[in-house]
Simulated assay, not measured.
Amino acid sequence: MKVSRAGIMIGISCAAALAAVVLASQWMQARTGLGTSRIAVAATDINLGTRLTADMVKLAEWPAGSVPAGAFVDLGKLDTRVTRLAVQRGEPLLESKLALPGATGGLSAVVGEGRRAMTVRVNDVVGVAGFALPGNYVDILVSTQAEKPTGDHADRSVSKLVLERILVLAVAQEASQNDTRPKVVNAVTLEVTPEQAEKLDLARSVGQLSLVLRNQIDMTPATTTGATKQTLLSGAKAAPEATRPGKAGPPAPAARKVETRPGTSARARQCGEVMTASGRITQCY
């Protein structure tokens, strides 16, 4: 009888311990988010504008509490989709990084809805020494001649920012955002709206374009009025002519007018002081 009671107590203790372990494990998983889900990630580095194939994607374990919005759990839904952004190996494939279904790939799939891709010719100076790379934002500066009235021969050179925060889609024929090394190229493709495309086309026909590289997170618009030759040199003033040594002597004594006494000549006499060896004398004439 004693043995039976002991066995029962041991069994109850083991069951209680097992239940405690299970409950503790569930509580820790709920608290630390150790539960996982399988989502689609890139199996290799993928450039923007690439049509996805089966060997480019795979399912990977991901913390259930940190699954990003737009993630895919079915690889079949990624078949023939095109990437809008470059994706690194192991990075989740999200709907926001893909072009709309039916896109054929290439640079056209990268262009945002309602926007256009436009290419402008640049050189090593205009292209910011090759540091304007795909994914960067630039401002467009044009240097031209302002309109002037007939007969006005004044210099009307003007430089003005005409477009701000323009996305660089590609340099030459390369659209990869993975390489950050500067590339000196002869053409840059920009993403613009139709209105910006009109301004850009006019700007390159009337003057010389320059790209101005800007901070990626800088959203502050510029409030400049443009620079002209007059405003550029407005702070310069002619220096006063220096007096050469030995040229100017001591200032001559000022002549003073002396009133005539009654009964003398009506003409007022002019008098002046003259320094002599014997002292200062006054001479009138």
Rank of each mutant, 00 (worst) to 15 (best):
L75F: 14
K2I: 11
L23W: 00
Q88A: 15
L78K: 03
A197R: 05
T36R: 13
P63V: 05
K58M: 15
E113V: 12
I8V: 07
E273P: 00
L23C: 03
N47L: 12
N136I: 02
T80W: 09
P221F: 05
D179W: 07
E195S: 10
A255D: 08
W27S: 10
T36A: 12
T189F: 00
K58N: 12
A242Y: 00
A60N: 02
A30V: 06
F131I: 00
S159H: 01
V142H: 02
L78T: 04
T44N: 13
E174T: 14
S265H: 12
L200V: 03
E273N: 08
A15V: 13
T150Y: 10
E174I: 13
L107C: 05
L85H: 15
T44C: 13
R280P: 02
L133A: 08
Q216E: 15
Y137I: 09
S234L: 02
A42Y: 09
T228C: 03
P262M: 12
A43H: 13
S205E: 06
A42V: 10
D124S: 14
D155V: 01
G112T: 05
L167C: 08
S278M: 01
I46K: 06
E259L: 12
P68K: 08
P194N: 07
R51N: 03
A60G: 02
D79G: 08
S159E: 10
V168A: 09
R38F: 12
V73F: 08
A16I: 03
L209P: 06
S176R: 09
E164Q: 15
T220K: 14
S37E: 15
V162R: 03
P101G: 08
A227W: 09
L133V: 07
A117Y: 04
L78A: 05
A222G: 14
M1F: 08
V192T: 12
V158K: 13
Q208E: 08
G130P: 06
A86C: 13
S108V: 05
T119F: 00
T180R: 15
S205V: 01
L209I: 11
E191S: 06
V22G: 02
C284D: 03
T36Q: 15
L59T: 14
C284L: 05
A132G: 03
R89I: 13
L163E: 11
V57K: 04
A86L: 06
